[in-house]
Design a protein around this nucleic acid. Structure first.
Lengths: 145, 145
DNA sequence: CTTGAAGCTATAGCTACTAGAGACCTTACG
DNA sequence: CGTAAGGTCTCTAGTAGCTATAGCTTCAAG
């Protein structure tokens, strides 16, 4: 049986995060020791590793909740899981496209910086003005999800 | 003089966001009409456009605060602005690299989905297991900033 | 002068955690 | 068996960057 610390270490998740996942119902309430400490088995480790991996892939917790509910009754079709993954892929592609445009603009800003005073700094100027933008970045923000 | 709604429209920022920026000190408190409504001039529009553009480029508000303090006394060297921009560029590059790896893995997951039941769904399996990962994505999470 | 849109303040909520306080449990060593 | 270190407990509050709600007031058009 694993303590919460060992579980966290094994799965690569911090201890308070595990308790948080339990609180929001992503992890079931585990057994407790005589002294009220959480004790975990292999299934908790598997589930937590699953959650961690999905988080790393950028899935929001709600999507992970859905995926977990699929694994909890494994006789359903995996079409739902497929849809979730495709949605995530589309989001990832969109973010890459946006970030690539941002990268180009930042590089342009930096190379134009004359190392002078702020009064003629291209970095500041670029940020004050959209006219130099190589690509449109109005509308959906990279940061807004 | 612009109302808060017109200002938001002109700068592409939502009204509550403008009030939020004022609250946290990114925008100065504007004049008020006789009936206590905010009235803005050109300088507020410039400043707000600057903030919006910087946000779109992925700058955190604290970096924007620094950049604004540079523009507020424009006789300093622009080296500080340059440093902020370079730091941001590095962050953007790192995010692109990570997202590209995630994209590859998501694509692999999806193409392997056999359209069967969850029991043999590759999407689910991929998320349970790191062994197929084309690239390491332990450590720093894409989502963690 | 009326009406409807836009504005006001204040508070609470969102995601996904992270940090702190102060008490309690477990375990290894002597 | 005692003790000390370090892990764990609960609870609360904080983070970023907004967004939403409630209940009210003000403004501008007709």
């Amino acid at each position: 049986m694993l303590t919460i610390g060992k579980l966290g270490e094994a799965a690569g998740v911090k201890v308070p995060t595990i308790r948080y996942y339990e609180q929001i119902g992503l992890l079931p309430e585990p057994e407790r020791s005589a002294g009220n400490q959480r004790r975990y088995g292999q299934s908790a480790l598997d589930r937590l590793a699953f959650i961690r991996h999905a988080r790393e892939l950028g899935f929001p917790l709600e999507a992970i909740r859905d995926l977990l509910s699929l694994t909890d009754n494994p006789h359903h079709s995996c079409a739902a899981a497929d849809i979730i993954a495709k949605k995530q892929l589309a989001a990832v592609k969109a973010r890459i496209a946006r970030l690539t445009a941002l990268k180009a603009e930042l590089e342009r800003m930096i190379t134009q910086c004359a190392q002078g005073t702020v009064a003629d700094c291209r970095v500041i100027e670029s940020l004050s003005d959209h006219s130099h933008c190589a690509q449109d970045h109005h509308g959906t923000s990279e940061l807004a999800e």
